[in-house]
Computed example of a mutant assay.
Amino acid sequence: MDLKLHEQLSFYYDSWDSWQVNLTVTDIDESGQEDGNNLPRVIDGAGFGILEDFGGVGRLGEIASLVKRDGVTAHRSELNWSGQWVPDNFTFDFYDQDDLNFRLKRLVQAYRQVYENHLNFGAKMAAILDREYYPGAHQKEEEPAPSVEVDLPLVVQQLKKADGSNITDGKLARINNQLIAAFIEDLKKNGKLSEKTVKRYHDELTFYLIGYLTPRKATLFGWIATDIGELYFKGCSDDEIKRLRAALNKLNKFLVTQGVVTPQWAREFKQGLKNSIDVGHDYAKETFSDNDDGLW
């Protein structure tokens, strides 16, 4: 598309909500020095942006005024009704340029994979698409200092109490980080697994406990935790669910050896994962088997 300086491009998104996006060419870099690896890139902006399936500009303006007046808690059911979760400290003025660029690069890859290669993208990419991860989750987490010991019994107690409560996303994420840190440190001390495998366990648990469960006010000790079969409907593949299942079972085995959960609890959790996967897989296959877009 050969647009000239100051020319404008308008496009419509979502025939139901009818978003109209206007783009204006304000500058053209002809130096040839721009690194293609840094494109596309957001260089400035303001505000959170649209909420999917929300009713368009009019409805978004109404809910923005209500949230500004009453706060998020009073209107959480309205904000979450379309399935797009927002953090407790959400405001429509929220703007995180690093987060936008983190999502932008990955979404380009995701849409190319779906529309050009006719493949489905996994649960992690779906979570990025829906912003269903704790803000800042794309940033590298700092591990606790070696001299700091994680009080594992206290962490487990806090997670049990937090499930389904009004705890803030940030506080719940920090508690989950302590749980993951204690588990990863034990794996490293054991020395039987490769660095790559340890990192995979870390990434799987961070995605699920912090990125997926935390925005839902859920923890490892709530009934939602075993319902990973639901991830088939987020675009998760068999391999992704297999890796997540292995990470959760490995974590629970660690908790048993530390004496903070019972073997019976771990067995029931393991069985719950299996049941959820079996049901989710069969139902998803039945639902999408007649789909002619090649995504199943």
Rank of each mutant, 00 (worst) to 15 (best):
F54D: 09
F54I: 06
G55Q: 09
G55S: 05
G55P: 07
G56K: 00
V57D: 11
V57F: 08
V57E: 10
G58Y: 06
G58I: 05
G58N: 15
G58S: 10
G58R: 12
G58D: 14
G58C: 05
G58F: 04
R59E: 13
R59W: 04
R59N: 12
R59Y: 08
R59I: 02
R59F: 02
R59M: 13
L60W: 00
L60K: 09
L60R: 13
G61C: 03
G61Q: 13
E62T: 10
E62A: 12
E62Q: 10
E62F: 11
I63V: 08
I63R: 01
A64L: 07
A64N: 06
A64E: 11
A64P: 00
S65F: 04
S65T: 08
S65Y: 01
S65E: 10
L66H: 12
L66K: 15
L66N: 09
L66P: 01
V67M: 06
V67F: 00
V67R: 00
V67H: 01
K68V: 01
K68F: 08
K68D: 12
R69I: 04
R69V: 03
R69F: 07
R69C: 01
R69N: 06
R69Y: 07
D70S: 09
D70F: 15
D70E: 14
D70K: 09
D70Q: 09
D70G: 00
G71K: 10
G71D: 15
G71Y: 05
G71V: 12
G71S: 12
V72E: 11
V72G: 01
T73W: 04
T73M: 14
T73C: 05
A74H: 03
A74E: 15
A74K: 08
A74F: 02
A74P: 01
H75E: 03
H75P: 04
H75K: 11
R76N: 03
R76M: 05
S77T: 09
S77C: 00
S77G: 01
S77Y: 00
E78K: 00
E78M: 04
E78C: 00
E78A: 03
E78H: 02
E78W: 02
E78I: 01
E78G: 03
L79S: 06
L79R: 13
L79T: 08
L79P: 09
L79F: 10
N80F: 02
N80H: 15
N80K: 03
N80V: 00
W81R: 14
W81C: 09
W81K: 14
W81E: 07
W81F: 15
S82E: 07
S82D: 07
S82F: 06
S82R: 12
S82W: 13
G83R: 08
G83T: 07
G83F: 09
G83M: 06
Q84V: 15
W85M: 13
W85N: 01
W85G: 01
